[in-house]
Simulated scan of single mutants.
Amino acid sequence: MIRAVLFDFDGTLADTAPDLGHALNRQRINRGLSSLPIDLIRTEASSGARGLLGLGLQIKPGDSGYEELYDEFLNFYEEQLCKDTVLFPGVGELLDEIESRNLLWGIVTNKARRFTDPLLEQLGLASRTSCVICGGDTANFKPHPEPLLTALNILNVTPAECIYLGDDIRDVESSLAAGIEPIVAMYGYLGDCGVAPESWGAEHLIKHPQDLLRHL
């Protein structure tokens, strides 16, 4: 019996790509480059600053100047953290139904707490979630199972009593390693890992947030 639902954040609960895109495009414009369309930015949004900087400025960790651009991106993002970020359509209704069934729900994300906590406050979720595990809260990041296992301990549920919804192959890998059933949010960013979501290893893929209710 399912007692808890865990969610990834970016690309699963919230569409954060517009504000991530604002930060990246601000960097590009400052360097005489044109803005990238948000639909293109969405393809790398789940990869965080590293993926976005690779997309927008063709720079990767270890390259000269990367750390400066990385810090600049995060500072720009923090300045307009929740300007255009919204919950995906149907997420609010999904969470209402989960709570009406007296199920626990939480968030496990690689996003730093510096950004996650203010976003949850502004989106009205901070007081509702039973646990939030952010990047840096544990020694390992997803796809390692440690963040999900930490959430299970906080919620006091077993892997068999939980499902995890995410939009990235790392979410599926982390979930499987933790013994939790993964479900892929096909409405999310999905990334560009070179492997189709149908081959990530999850048995179930959903096209709309409320489709998750069939698995509770």
Rank of each mutant, 00 (worst) to 15 (best):
E93F: 02
E121R: 13
I59M: 10
L120T: 03
I107R: 09
L81Q: 05
T109C: 04
A112D: 13
F73I: 09
F73Q: 06
R50Y: 02
R101H: 07
Q58S: 14
R101N: 01
T85I: 04
E78D: 08
I59E: 09
L69G: 06
I38F: 06
A45F: 05
F115C: 02
Q122S: 06
N102Y: 09
G62S: 09
A45C: 07
E97N: 00
G92I: 03
F88N: 09
P61I: 07
Y66D: 12
L104V: 06
L119R: 10
D117Y: 02
R50M: 15
V86A: 13
L40E: 13
D63T: 04
R50W: 08
A49L: 14
E72I: 10
G124T: 14
G90I: 02
F115R: 05
G62F: 08
R50L: 10
I59K: 11
V91H: 03
E72F: 09
L52Y: 05
V91P: 00
E99I: 00
L74C: 12
V86T: 14
E93Y: 04
D71N: 14
G48A: 09
G48Y: 00
L123F: 11
E79A: 15
F76D: 15
R101I: 06
R101V: 01
K83G: 08
G48M: 02
F88Q: 11
F73M: 12
G62R: 14
P61W: 08
L87G: 08
L95Y: 01
E67W: 14
E93A: 14
V86N: 15
N110Y: 04
E44F: 12
W105C: 03
C82M: 09
E44C: 13
N110M: 07
L87C: 08
Y77G: 00
L55C: 12
L55S: 12
R113A: 01
E67A: 15
S64D: 12
S47V: 04
D71G: 12
T116H: 05
E44H: 14
L119I: 11
Y70Q: 12
